[in-house]
Design a protein around this nucleic acid. Sequence first.
RNA 1: GCCAGCGUAGCUCAGUGGUAGAGCAGCGGUUUCGUAAACCGCGGGUCGUAGGUUCAAAUCCUAUCGCUGGCUCCA
Length: 590
Amino acid sequence: MRLRAIVAIINPVNKADKLETMRHSASHVMAGAVLSLFPDARFGIGPAIEDGFYYDFDLPRSLTPEDLPVIEERMREIIKADLPFRHRELPRDAARKLFAAQPFKLELLDEIADDKAGVYEQGDFVDLCRGPHVASTGEIGAFKLTGIAGAYWRGDEHNAMLQRIYGVAFKSQPELEEHLARLEEAKKRDHRKLGRELEIYMFDDEVGPGLPLWLPRGGAIIEEIEKLAKEMEFKYGYVRVRTPHITKEDLFKRSGHLPYYADSMYPPMELEGVKYYVKPMNCPMHHKIFSSRSRSYRDLPVRIAEYGECYRYEKSGELFGLMRVRSMQMNDAHIYCSEDQFEQEFASVVFLYLEYFKIFNITEYYMRLSTHHPSGLGKKYVGNGAMWLKTEDMVRQAMKKNNITYDEVPDEAAFYGPKIDVQVKSAIGREFTLATNQVDFSQSESFDLKFINREGKEERPLIIHRAPLSTHERLIGFLLEHYGGAFPTWLAPVQVRLVPVADRHIGHARGLEAELKGRGIRAEVDDRSERMNLKIRQAQMDKVPYMLVIGDKEAADNSVSVRRRSGEQVPPQPFAAFLASLSEEIAAKA
RNA sequence: GCCAGCGUAGCUCAGUGGUAGAGCAGCGGUUUCGUAAACCGCGGGUCGUAGGUUCAAAUCCUAUCGCUGGCUCCA
């Protein structure tokens, strides 16, 4: 959302479509409405964004949801009046006078390169704006104000907080309503709702915010994902380790976490005069394992993997269901390689992502290269400008050579190096980094990591941090929405629900359950004294892939009547046949 | 962390100054049933927590905790 907003500001509209222009104009109309209600309002910016627009205001009082209909009403009047948007170019000084009472506009004026300031005017409202706009307010289609939010001026938390009003706008009322209906639909897929309904995970006030408890069904999913990760990592030459959750302060001083990452760490505990921190990342421990013995170039690359449990003190307002938590289990690994191995290793990690994404049928994502910004050297980023440029270019090369497309975003890197993130969207449209692949040229130095190269000399390895399966928390949160709770059979917490028609069939059903479990299949008998219809309905709501109805016929000839989650009824078949095809489906992760 | 809104039973929600409600879930019973909700009955909440105002607070005020929508920040 934030990124898109910025894009909308920097690339205004000249070649953009009419819809975007109309949305931008709608934001001006909203500003005009706010001005008429609050004559002392000060104006920030008001761009078009995906599906709509917003405008930021500094107002004498806080807005409440009740204000929105009033503003909407005023907007309708302005639209009905069909006021023309008048465009003028003013010399900077004249614009200064015009916006003398508008400190935010004055700040923007200071940054305009040439001496001309574009101004748009409709009715009483005059705004500093590059445009373009629709010809008159009457051209604005159907809109709705959707929310009020605080937003820092220019997105900087050190600046004043303005009040932002969000709106959506479409050409026609039906399109607007369709959009609103889509949002309602998306809410049903929200992982927080599904997670509760399907009993995947929970939070508890006494345990603490951002600290999920995985319920048995979530636990089953975690087991499957870890199994997959272990198979893949074994296949691709990783070795697995386990490391402690807490370590002495010294380690994180050395790693650079304390100078650069302390804000996101739980405060230390002190024992016998020594401070211990809970780990926010696994890397320092893996580095210690790498340097636990001397390494030859023949050993490289060394790929050390661990499902590491980390704790990060995310600020309270940043927590979001499973997608942003304080305790997390990370699909972590560190690859130590030589410079000439880097491209190959980096690319093969990206290919590993793609292999995983194929398994999960993840198609909607984009890759993002995050680079440093020179102004952050020594503050946000470790200070070695030359290495930043060099490694950033190595990543670009690795991506380009393998024809992998990506967006490049400056000033978003990790403190120790550039990274490729895989961005996905949650059901409600919020963007998240799912997987990440990061270069690290810094900790190699600080941990004095080395290997003996072909010439018999010591050389520093490059480090790749990677987490293709993200954390269990974020991945499963994402998958819940991705599958709408209907996990593919291999991942489904309950794969088979046995539904006895009457109590006398429970014994036979239990026998089948035992056979299924013997094959590692998650099966359970619904042995409650309820009608079969109810059991079917609940299995459907639990999104169990297979329901086996067991009655007299089935018990007599050891067959099963199969109902799929889709509602499809498969003709009765021998239990052995079902077992075979189910095992095959699970093995294929279909 | 910041701005705003919201916290009533396990879940979804009604109740805005006068003794806490519904549906689902749960429990007990009846029913033994063929592919998305059988029937009858019962229990369950110091209304997030702590103060305050009032004869009287779920309802008004303050603080605090949590959640939600954004901002900031991120796997």
